Simulated assay, not measured.
Amino acid sequence: MTQPPLLTIILTPLLILALATLLTWVERRLLGLWQDRYGPNRVGPGGLFQAVADGIKLLFKQDWIPPFADKAVFILAPAIGMMTVMLSFAVIPVTARQSIADHLNVGLLFVLAMMSLGVYAVVLAGWASNSKYALLGGMRAAAQMISYEVFMGLSLLGVVMITGSFSLHDIVTAQSGLWFIIPQCAGFVVFLLAGIAETHRLPFDLPEGENELGAGFHTEYSGMKFGMFFLAEYAGIILVSALVTTLYLGGWQGPLLPPVLWFALKTGALVAFFILLRAALPRPRYDQLMALGWKVLLPVSLLNIAATGTVLMLHAPG
C-alpha cells in the first residue's frame, strides 16, 4: 500500500472545514425553502457569502473567557471536538484510491473510537464553564452520546459479520453486488438515528436545548471557540452521512458517473435529510429520547445481529 501524498494530508482537513462552512449556508437556504420563507439572500449571489461574513464576524468577536471558568479545560474542549471529527475523515474511502488511510484494517473501530472521544468535548465544556445551564447540557450530552454509541456499535455488527472485516474499503467492495441497506435495513435505521443523536442535531439536540438551557454546553463560549463547536457539528453531519454512504449505500460505487461524484451525491442527499429533520420534527422530551434508545433501538439491534448470524450460518458452506 502506497503512502498518501503530503498534499492530500494537508488539503483534506482544509476541504472539510470549507465544506462545513458552506453547509451553514446550504442549511439556511434549504430551511427557507422547506419552511416557505427567505433564507440568506443579501450577501453575494443567493446569499452565498453569508457564511464568509459570519466567519469573519466570529474571528473579530471578543474571545472572552469567564473569570469563574476553568481556563485550561475551557480552551481545550472545543479543540477536542474539532480534532476528533477531523481525524475520523482519515479512514473514509471517497473512492477506491482517494483517502488518507482507507485500507486501515481497523478503520471502522478507529471511527467509533474518535466519535467516542468526541463526547469529552461537550462534557468538559459544560463542566469547565462553571455554569448551571452549561453543566446540565454537558450531563445531557454524556448520557445521550454514550448511550447512543452502544446502539451505533451494535447496529454495525451485521455489516461486519457479512463482510468479515473492519476495513471500510473492504466493506464498500463487498457491496459490489448488493448494497447493505437491503439486507441490513434494520441496522441502517438504527445507525442513522444513532448518528443524529451523536451529532446532537435536531430533533435530538437536547444537550443544547435552547428553550430550557439557553445554549447548553456552549452557553459561555464566544468568538472562534464557539465557532469551533459550530464547525465541528456541521463536520459531524458530513462525517455521519459519509459513514452511512460507506457502510450501507455502496460508497463510491454506481453506474456511468465518476466514483467521487457518486460518493458526493449519496453523502449530499443524506446531509439534506439531516436538514429536513430540523425543518420538520419537534424536539422530544429527554426521557423520550432515552426511552427510544434503550427500549426500541437496543432490542432492534440485538434482533438484527441474531437474524444476520442465523442467515449466515444457514448459508455457510458445508
Rank of each mutant, 00 (worst) to 15 (best):
I9N: 06
A232S: 15
I92Y: 03
N211M: 11
E198I: 12
R285K: 12
I237C: 11
F151D: 03
F217T: 03
G214H: 01
L213H: 00
T245R: 08
Q3C: 03
R42Q: 12
R285M: 06
A18L: 15
Q98S: 11
F191E: 13
A235C: 04
D205M: 07
F230R: 14
G158F: 02
L104P: 01
K295F: 14
L76V: 13
M228R: 09
L6V: 15
G164T: 13
G195I: 08
A279G: 14
I305T: 10
M313H: 13
L302N: 10
I162S: 13
Q288K: 08
F74T: 05
F188K: 02
M114A: 13
L281N: 07
K132N: 11
T24P: 08
L17F: 01
P66T: 08
T267V: 08
A20I: 08
A121C: 15
G32D: 08
M83D: 02
V160F: 07
M114I: 10
P258N: 07
A51K: 05
L298E: 10
L112P: 02
L312N: 06
L136F: 07
V189L: 15
A215G: 00
L239N: 01
F110R: 06
L213C: 02
G318K: 11
S167F: 00
I171K: 04
G47S: 05
V52T: 09
W262I: 07
S176N: 12
A142G: 13
V122P: 05
G309K: 11
G153T: 05
F180L: 12
S176K: 15
A142W: 14
I92E: 05
G177A: 10
F74H: 12
P67M: 06
L289T: 14
L22S: 13
L104K: 00
L261A: 15
G254H: 02
I196P: 01
K132F: 05
F230L: 13
M290K: 02
L303E: 07
S165V: 11
Q3P: 04
V111M: 03
L239A: 02
S131L: 04
I92D: 03
L249T: 04
G55T: 09
L59F: 15
S167D: 08
T95K: 09
M224H: 06
P299R: 09
F188T: 07
L109Y: 00
G216E: 01
S301R: 00
R37C: 05
W25N: 05
S165H: 06
F229M: 12
L312F: 08
P5M: 11
L276C: 09
L281Y: 14
S165P: 05
L247W: 03
A279W: 03
T95D: 12
G55N: 10
G46Y: 02
L202D: 05
Q35C: 10
L302Q: 10
F204T: 05
I237K: 06
P258K: 06
F229C: 10
Q35P: 04
